[in-house]
Design a protein around this nucleic acid. Sequence first.
DNA 1: CTGAAAGCGCTTACAG
DNA 2: CTGAAAGCGCTTACAG
Lengths: 326, 326
Amino acid sequence: MTISYIAETAGVSIPTVSKVVNGRSGVSADTRARVEALIHEYGYRKSNRRNLLELVFGQLEDLWGIEIIRGVERVAREHRVGVVLTEFGPRRDTGDHPIDDTLARRPACVVTVAQLTEEQRDRLRANDIPFVVFDPTTELPDGVPFVGATNWAGGRSATRHLIGLGHRRIGMISGPDGVLCCRARLDGYRSALEAAGLAMDPDLVVRADLTRQDGRTAALALLDRADPPTAVFACNDLQALGVYEAARELGLRIPADLSVVGFDDLPVAALVDPPLTTVHQPLAEMAAAATELALALGRGEPTPQVGLELATTLTVRRSTARPADH
Amino acid sequence: MTISYIAETAGVSIPTVSKVVNGRSGVSADTRARVEALIHEYGYRKSNRRNLLELVFGQLEDLWGIEIIRGVERVAREHRVGVVLTEFGPRRDTGDHPIDDTLARRPACVVTVAQLTEEQRDRLRANDIPFVVFDPTTELPDGVPFVGATNWAGGRSATRHLIGLGHRRIGMISGPDGVLCCRARLDGYRSALEAAGLAMDPDLVVRADLTRQDGRTAALALLDRADPPTAVFACNDLQALGVYEAARELGLRIPADLSVVGFDDLPVAALVDPPLTTVHQPLAEMAAAATELALALGRGEPTPQVGLELATTLTVRRSTARPADH
DNA sequence: CTGAAAGCGCTTACAG
DNA sequence: CTGAAAGCGCTTACAG
């Protein structure tokens, strides 16, 4: 997209478009309006689009940010595209929108781990900057490109693993209702129980935030029952570590007295004692796929799909075993 | 200042200068050097210097990369400078130098966590791009700006903590000799022992790589002795987790039978059981300081100092206690 | 107000 | 490896 193309389409000369683009005087209001309309319609950008990809985080996550960054960086480097990393954190003191700095950098495309507001998405669209949402936590409008993981299948597989070991009373620590991936994991759990002909006991499902502390509290509630579960599937690894804590407090050994499965496979999962059985999210591969997609969109290529989910895999370590009475 | 002027002065063609400026191949090392010298001398800027800071990693570290990124990002954002993240990893399949892509982006400055080669540093200097070395692991020539941590003081403080608890036989798992911060930590350990009037037993110091596996092996060697230490100071947290593993295998309880101190304060340190007493490195603050320094250099400001070390602090958790016989 | 023409700074493709 | 030549995207100065 060049000013010469805009000029031709508008039926004016190149210098005229140049003046409009640069806000110079010497153009009639009529001509200016016509040219501006076309500039907007074709998404013309004054300077050449930069060879940059913007990776936007809501907040840089301690434990899995690096995996994402690594995946993005690898693919971007192959394409010789620089990765600009920004945090749209809540702690912005300046009055301006964080998106302004991103727009000013004129990236070729954006990969966003943060949930952008509808307004922010519109700003990107208005500036013709394509974006891909990484692991969306809320429902996206149709047509918004995204890359996620098979959360439902992961929840199902984690639960099936426990059923296969002989567990019949399996507790679940679920996440906030608004978080889409948590709902999918919960439904996977439910589906696996149904498939095995087990009735789901609603008392064995506890809602909790995705933190260690809340995982602990939820686990204490589950284990304090008259008929406690013999296994717990937590919505993420941090919650699972909270279950570890609760078990220690109650004098329960893992996995002898209680089996625990997490979700995410954070680096810490392999380091705790016992090493945690968990559902692995291929974060680096997801990030790589999101980057390929974003770059393709940035080049204006037609893409075979706008959204995809990459397969999770169950990583069996040593926090799961047959139940004691089996 | 244009490339045509540089070309004329250097006695080469305009396309040749263009290649040099953009880090393209197809220029002899000789010609490149001559042109770079002139670019430096006349302060040529390819268009306007971009409002970018390049953050260079050797390899993105799983466990502490995020802290560094966060510190850099926070300060860069305050200055409305974009952060481009690159990895100068060993797994580059393309034949070209990774530094070329960095130069082509024309950042205002560079913060490097990787140890750049002398040649890479020269390329940056030749292109008038100031850089700051983050936590240098090898001796730097005078005048190279850096930001590190007080490793010696940290090693001293960790050891003093153990002595204060009553330990007299304190083992140390040291790092590779070539890694400067490890040597400093070891010397801090030695210094604290001397200050307490304790003789250092060379048999209680074992060299190991900075991994969990090597920490385990080293700990087994230390604890397998007739007169084993009652406490171990590991050169980093991963080694300390190896000590945990070795202790478990030998049936030693931490901290009742063995006290353990690490170094770094990775996120995982607070999550293991028992939570690890360790020397905290203020990575985010170090990164912020490195960024401020780099940006100041990029603006051509005179800076009060070219190198500084930020204070470490001992974080006492639950892996240290009085020795059993005390 | 408008645009033909000249020109700028740079890149690209390619011949040597 | 090197650079003459063509060309790109844009701006500027100026004639109409």
